[in-house]
Design a protein around this nucleic acid. Sequence first.
RNA 1: GCACUCGUAGUUCAGAGGAUAGAACGCAGCGUUGCGGACGCUGAGGUCGGGGGUUCGAGUCCCUCCGGGUGCACCA
Length: 574
Amino acid sequence: MDTTTLLSQKIKEAVEKLYNVKLETVVIEVPENEQFGDFSTNVALTITKQLKKVPFDIASELAMELSSYDMKSFAKVEAIRPGFINFKLSKNYLLSNMCTILQEKDSYGSSKIGGGRNVIVEYSQPNPNKPMHIGHSLNNFLGSSLAQIMEFMGYKVLKANYMNDWGTHIVKSMLMYKKYGNGAEPNEKSDHFVGKFYVMYEQELEKNKELADELADMFRKMESLDPEVLELWKKITNWVYTGWEQTYRDENVKFDTWFYQHDYRESGKEVVAAALEKGIAEKDPTGAVIARLEKYGIPDKVLLRSDGTSIYSTQDLQLAKDNYEKYHFDKRLYVVDARQSDYFKQIFKITEILGFEFANKLHHVAYGFVSLPEGKVSSRKGTTVNADEVFRRLCELERGEITGSVKGAAGSDETIRRVALAAYRYALLKVDPAQDIIFNYEKVTKFDGNTGPYILYTYARANSVMEKAGYMDETLEEFKWNSVELDAKEEALLRILTRFGAVVENACNSFSPNFIANYIYDVAQKFNSFYSACPILDAPTPDKKMLRLVLTKAASQVIKNGLALLVIDVVEKM
RNA sequence: GCACUCGUAGUUCAGAGGAUAGAACGCAGCGUUGCGGACGCUGAGGUCGGGGGUUCGAGUCCCUCCGGGUGCACCA
């Protein structure tokens, strides 16, 4: 049983015994201020009215009662004004937790609360007509991190990419390639090659409005499966996919499966029929089918065009239904930017009204915009920042940071690549997804401040000490830890290490990897503070040296595990 | 116009209804001939956008106003 569950059970027991009050839930929190201990509860404050007693008196009585219980994990139970009860973990607990870290290694902090239930995380979803931009990177990082976190929490995760590969947006690139490409093969990264034709369309359209008719004509041919147009479609989209392989590899983003919109062009109509039958959708005079949602405070949603063809929303509904039949998912996450919030409200509402079993299992994970400090990147103005370009520039800056300044750094290409990716991922994942992000190349690649490189540097340094000491796992068995006194810095580090599991669980429940990012930063800071105050190799006694060495190992293990949940690889040496 | 979302130090951001609102960068100082100093320590800097309300207690929840961003039917 974990500490907080045990604690809340004991508190309920004490309250019932002393006051004959049965509590439904007990709030246990981790105080921000360390002087208030490791856990605290406000129960005395919440029942003060009921008992008509002064909160501090209740807290004191409860603290007294709880102290008499057999709870070896806690060294101190204390009532504090206005009426909190604070709990301090015992030295024994802190040290045994440290040993647990070394035993459980990469699985320390994991949990089985997911119970092996299926979760689909759908993310990335770029349009296959151009290269990815910095916003896609945020999506990629969020999605891959959430998948990792949920797996760590015991869910069975399917990472899915959904290709919006059918529609006029693709035909724009196709048409321009046909007109001006002269059958050329890509002479650059192939998604960029295709992207240029996409941009060309918008420019040409300014000069020649008839282009829109050509576009419609080509799309009609595609809809009627004209072999020549289909071949072009395959060629164009394959070029984009090939180009993306590199981007996904650079960003360390992987998928278990890809869904394609073109597979759902016909089947979506099933859902539409059901909606018509239930009376939540109706045909308007033009023949289009419209879901009436205004009475729920949501805008109406078109499900079928007046010409009878299906649109994205229809296909999305069908995809969810198919997925549920196939995977019986417990949750399906849609990692999509916040602009689509209304869209998902509509879709989710429709599944609810249709009485689909999975209606309450769908979640939209929304996130904000990424812009650069020199100016707001507005998708409206079409000023986007290319993802490959961002990564290239981060590598370049990181090479300068590492080879120019980090003492004793070898700075191999692989190291630079990893540190640059850590800088990129960490910068985007450390902020609350709901916030818009201002991305600053210089800041995120620095080795000081709240950055990925700072954390990797801390890890590498810890590793270097252990290497010098000839640390091996057997060290743990020789260690007689109960005789050692703890210094303040050692204790602070030990304390924060006990919280990892709870932090991950919280991040999982609220789909917020930023909780983990900020936690690891906190660990890194506490480690550095310990490191500078407490000599490890030259510790005053052999026992102290052993303790510090093991503590260093434990801290670096937690940092590694936390980074893994952000899909960031550590470097053993810089 | 309606809806959603964000507003916290000069800047970038944390803040699980709790206790004196925290970091980092920048700024002003200090430490170390070191285990990887791009580190650590100290300090200045805040009417948590404004105003109401709920609560023993509000940056956090509710209402309202202001400001930024976004979205509003046959695009995705």
